[in-house]
Deep mutational scan, measured.
Amino acid sequence: GIPATNLSRVAGLEKQLAIELKVKQGAENMIQTYSNGSTKDRKLLLTAQQMLQDSKTKIDIIRMQLRRALQ
């Protein structure tokens, strides 16, 4: 079985993952909103794209940590 310490770690990672998935969803929504907007929305679009990139990276890292914890 999986050690108890790993189980609480997994629960924490799953919570983090859920949050990051919401951030990713929000960033994707912002990108959709701003991509057909005016030029003043360009900065917001770039910010949203950066957020999305960061979020995807975090999600990958969390998933990797989850896999390790579940081994």
Rank of each mutant, 00 (worst) to 15 (best):
Glu28Gln: 06
Leu21Ile: 07
Lys43Cys: 14
Ile61His: 10
Asn36Pro: 04
Gly37Leu: 04
Ala11Trp: 05
Ser35Phe: 14
Leu7Cys: 15
Ile62Leu: 12
Leu21Ser: 02
Ala69Met: 09
Asp54Gly: 04
Ile31Pro: 00
Arg42Lys: 10
Glu20Met: 14
Arg42Ile: 14
Leu17Tyr: 02
Gln25Ala: 10
Leu21Lys: 03
Ile59Met: 02
Thr57Pro: 01
Ser55Trp: 01
Arg9Ala: 08
Ile2Ser: 10
Glu28Thr: 03
Ala11Asn: 04
Ala4Gln: 13
Asn36Phe: 07
Lys15Cys: 14
Val23Glu: 03
Ser38Phe: 08
Lys15Pro: 00
Asn29Phe: 12
Leu66Gln: 01
Leu17Asn: 00
Gln65Asn: 05
Val10Gln: 03
Thr47Arg: 14
Asn29Met: 11
Tyr34Cys: 06
Leu52Ala: 02
Ile31Lys: 01
Asp54Cys: 11
Leu21Gly: 02
Ile19Trp: 08
Ala69Trp: 04
Ala48Tyr: 09
Ala69His: 04
Ala48Glu: 01
Asn36Gln: 11
Thr57Gln: 12
Leu44Trp: 04
Arg63Glu: 06
Gln16Ala: 12
Glu28Trp: 07
Ile59Arg: 00
Gly26Ile: 15
Asn29Glu: 14
Ala18Lys: 08
Ile62Ala: 01
Arg63Asn: 06
Ile62His: 01
Leu70Thr: 04
Gln65Trp: 07
Leu17Val: 01
Glu20Phe: 11
Ser55Phe: 01
Leu17Asp: 00
Lys22Cys: 14
Gln32Tyr: 10
Pro3Ile: 06
Leu52Tyr: 06
Leu7Val: 12
Thr39Asn: 07
Ser8Asp: 13
Thr33Leu: 15
Glu20Ser: 03
Glu20Leu: 13
Gly1Tyr: 06
Ala18Leu: 09
Leu44Met: 11
Lys15Ser: 05
Ile61Ala: 09
Thr47Ser: 12
Gln49Ala: 04
Glu20Lys: 02
Ile2Asn: 11
Leu17Thr: 00
Met51Pro: 00
Lys15Tyr: 06
Ser35Arg: 10
Lys56Gln: 12
Lys22Asn: 05
Gln25Leu: 08
Met64Thr: 13
Ser38Met: 08
Leu70Val: 06
Gly37Cys: 13
Ala18Gln: 14
Asn36Arg: 07
Leu66Val: 02
Gln71Trp: 04
Ile19Cys: 12
Asn6Thr: 06
Asp41Glu: 05
Arg63Thr: 05
Pro3Asn: 12
Ser38Gly: 11
Ile19Arg: 13
Leu46Thr: 05
Ile19His: 12
Gly26Glu: 15
Asp60His: 14
Ala11Tyr: 07
Ser55Ala: 13
Leu66Thr: 01
Ile59Gln: 00
Asn29Lys: 14
Thr33Met: 15
Ser55Leu: 03
Thr57Arg: 15
Glu28Arg: 05
Ile61Tyr: 11
Ala4Phe: 01
Met51Trp: 04
Ile31Met: 04
Ser38Asp: 13
Glu14Arg: 15
Met64Lys: 11
Glu14Met: 15
Lys43His: 12
Ile2Val: 12
Gly37Asn: 09
Thr33Ile: 15
